[in-house]
Design a protein around this nucleic acid. Structure first.
Lengths: 157, 157
DNA sequence: ACTTAACCTAGTAAAATAGTCAACTATTAG
DNA sequence: CTAATAGTTGACTATTTTACTAGGTTAAGT
């Protein structure tokens, strides 16, 4: 399991979706605006998330995306796996033949680490994250920030 | 702490160095040949490892690199930190202002994960890895593999 | 019909990764 | 001393991944 910014974008978007889609579907346009991620990049990410069966797209006006499962049944490891092409960190895909049909020196190390990270992230669900007060606070602020985003950048000449 | 192939290369090279440098310094040329990493890429990695005070270069004939500390005092997290420029996985470098001076939604998550991974890797020293039989076996095989690399790929016509 | 928003394709800019090349310096064996 | 060794450095190239843009098509609601 690699850890890059791509997975972070996906988790952030899913968290935003989980928070805002309780009533009706959420458009990618909204997520893009709130999380400052480009719309088309979100489309790419959500195409993968949809193929992985994690979200469902609803077309037409009033449409958007919603979660396929409950927030307590969606864990972070799955989200990252869905958007990350090569989810093995061992180069040989667990085949242990990275180098001339031999296990590479650090093969066991990376397998162990990969498992460790996966275990950690599998135990964290979107629901867990939503429960945390800090996240809710941030999300609320992002909800209303538009109205207050002005009047800051005025410095004396 | 990000996890990419770059860090893996560094750990592999350091492990090779730890194994072979017990008597005399090891040249990057040797490591490059054994681990099939390009010499110049190794030079880049070892330049960073040297600046981080983990290895020492010995010039002239019979020279090469050797470890500055004992294998039991070099952990994997330090190696990865040394070669990886941006060792924070939070985009804002722990400043919690990734987005318009606010903590991003997933800030706490990535901080926790980063710490988790670091803890895991800090507890593993080069000595630990060397002790593992599997690693020693592989290293020995790599020592002698040249003599046996033929006669495999003959299949009946 | 018209709008909305998912869905899809192709391309592209920027960054990180991986590797190359060439010049230079310090060391040491002979 | 000299030549060979091997680290040191910087600039440069190629590839891949990441992030984004532009343009469409399709399905659903009004």
């Amino acid at each position: 399991m690699r850890l890059t910014t791509k997975g972070r974008y996906a988790v952030t978007a899913m968290l935003d979706l989980a928070f805002h889609s309780q009533v009706k579907p959420v458009t990618l346009t909204d997520i893009a605006a709130r999380q400052t991620i480009s719309l088309s990049y979100l489309e790419q990410l959500f195409a993968r998330l949809r193929r992985a069966g994690m979200v469902k797209g609803v077309r037409g006006p009033g449409g958007g995306y919603k979660l396929c499962r409950k927030t307590s049944e969606i864990n972070i490891a799955d989200i990252i796996s869905a958007v990350d092409e090569s989810l093995d960190s061992t180069k040989c895909g667990g085949e242990a033949n990275c180098q001339k049909d031999q296990a590479c020196l650090t093969h066991a190390l990376w397998m162990g680490l990969s498992e460790q990270i996966r275990n950690y992230l599998e135990d964290i669900s979107l629901a867990d994250l939503l429960e945390k007060n800090q996240v809710q606070d941030v999300a609320k602020r992002q909800h209303y920030e538009v109205h207050q985003a002005i009047e800051i950048h005025r410095h004396p000449e």
